[in-house]
Design a protein around this nucleic acid. Structure first.
Length: 202
DNA sequence: TAAACATGCCTTACCAGTGT
DNA sequence: ACACTGGTAAGGCATGTTTA
């Protein structure tokens, strides 16, 4: 097949061709596309060069299609329809139709809190998706996202990375449990006492 | 002769390349 | 990053050509 010089190909030529086929008039086709008669005539001239065929012959006040134009019409018309409907119309995401993978990175705590509910929600709203959960922690979650190992991360993590988008899901209240005898502390616990005392974050 | 198409020339917009 | 420049293409104006 001969290589195509796409620089010389313009989608508007096909639109002009369709308008000419419909109106069989340069002037009316120009009106239909809201351009001047000369502009449409130029378009027809470029089409003729591109397709190496006169495409239309003037016969009185009407432009008669050539055999080549009749050949091209059933190709070009559905092509324009396809472009209008399948290419230029924005597609909306339908979770129920989606059958691809969804990879969620979860910290230990997030897995404990969210995993069962996530499973139920995905099974109901995106029953065909391939849901997988991946263990991450506060250290490696950035790498997991940037290396495309997960699509989203759930957990008590913070990021200043402008590439990563973050949304706060909820605020949780933490409590401090301590043994007054072994620590020698008493309630209420001051911040100073808390920070001075060895402790574990669970 | 009027209507419609074709064409030369011009303006404008866009893009790529180049220099600062 | 920005400005400048040259090439290219689209579209309009004016006018020539064609046809009934």
């Amino acid at each position: 097949m001969k290589p195509v010089n796409w620089r010389s190909v313009d989608l508007n030529f096909l639109v002009a061709f369709a308008a000419l086929m419909e109106t069989r008039s340069v002037t009316r086709a120009a009106e239909k596309l809201s351009i001047g008669q000369s502009a449409m005539s130029h378009n027809l001239s470029r089409l003729r060069t591109l397709l190496d065929d006169p495409l239309f012959h003037r016969q009185g006040n009407e432009m008669q299609q050539t055999a080549r134009a009749f050949e091209l019409e059933p190709v070009i018309t559905p092509l324009l329809d396809t472009i209008a409907t399948d290419v230029l119309t924005p597609v909306s995401f339908e979770p129920k139709q989606y059958s691809g993978p969804i990879r969620i990175g979860l910290t230990d705590y997030a897995e404990l809190v969210f995993a069962p509910a996530l499973f139920d929600v995905f099974r109901e709203q995106a029953p065909h998706c391939q849901l997988s959960c991946h263990p991450v922690d506060r250290v490696n979650y950035r790498e997991a996202l940037k290396n495309d190992q997960v699509d989203v991360v759930l957990g008590a993590v913070q990021t200043e990375d402008p590439v990563l988008l973050m949304e706060n899901l909820y605020t949780e209240r933490h409590v401090c449990l301590f043994d007054p005898h072994s620590t020698g502390l008493s309630a209420p616990l001051s911040l100073d006492d808390y920070t001075k005392t060895p402790h574990a974050l669970v």
